[in-house]
Nucleic acid binder design. Structure first.
Lengths: 142, 142
DNA sequence: TTATAAATAAAAACCTTTTTCATTTACGGA
DNA sequence: TCCGTAAATGAAAAAGGTTTTTATTTATAA
């Protein structure tokens, strides 16, 4: 696992401030997805002044840079996760304890039963949604 | 397509108020996903008094009853769609024009390229996420 | 060491969604 | 058809999460 966060930030053209480095450290250690508020709580133990907007801004920048991943939760709030796997993969998220399991396989029905059998988890729902730009809208957009 | 919305509401144990019927009519005609605000705009043309909270409440009730579907949009706002297909399926959503295409197939990589080829759309991202309750959390939860 | 652009704190604003509560309405049973 | 009751609604306010603004501080390249 890469822990040279100074380098990571440089590559994103972000200044390596103590707070950014701390956010990366905190994120990298979590086996669960976290809200900006969660990160803020931890940051307040390390810094005597740290604003919630700073946490929001930094998490957003890190996600834009691909260092962390936004998590889609049915509650529609903002969550982030530091993925260990760098290749294409999907997630099982426990909406109770927020733990994430990074999945290696990618089919669906099969995936679900196989996954439940292997892990003892109960799948409540899944989201498969393709986001894009339709033919009509392609004139002038991505 | 079933248009007996009075019956639909009865089956959900909801009173068939003019406003509920109107919301169903509006939703059923839309080939796009809509926000509560969108629905409210249309409702205001039909009723001289109609509150936004009423629209929120009714959309939520209809979604709980499975008549309409909540749409997961990367912008994390609330959207709904009246699905024509009643069996298991997924969606392609255009985040520009909000049009939805209901998909018949369910694999992923293959699905994407096939879909782009057939429709001329450009896929920007996809979400595959399995939501559930992990082994640890199953003690006392669903 | 200094200049400069970027990052931050603090406060306020924003916007969507939900709650509260008094009033009105739908509708099953007289 | 009329009533009684639970459900639905409007209006206003509150809640809650997220973003913007602005003055100040900081990282870093020259």
């Amino acid at each position: 696992m890469d822990t040279n966060y100074f380098q990571t930030l440089k590559e994103l053209n972000l200044k390596a401030t103590p707070k950014r480095l701390a956010i990366l450290e905190i994120m990298a250690l979590k086996p669960v997805y976290v809200s900006p508020e969660d990160v803020w709580q931890e940051m307040r133990m390390r810094f005597k002044t740290i604003g919630l907007p700073t946490v929001y801004r930094n998490l957003d920048e890190l996600a834009s840079g691909g260092v962390i991943t936004k998590i889609i939760n049915p509650d529609r709030q903002l969550y982030y996760f530091f993925c260990q796997k760098k290749h294409h993969h999907h997630h099982f998220i426990c909406v109770f304890c927020h733990r994430i399991e990074e999945l290696d396989f990618c089919a669906i029905r099969e995936m679900e039963t196989e996954f439940e059998r292997k892990t003892g988890s109960k799948i409540l729902s899944h989201i498969i949604q393709i986001n894009g730009c339709c033919k009509k809208c392609r004139k002038g957009n991505p």
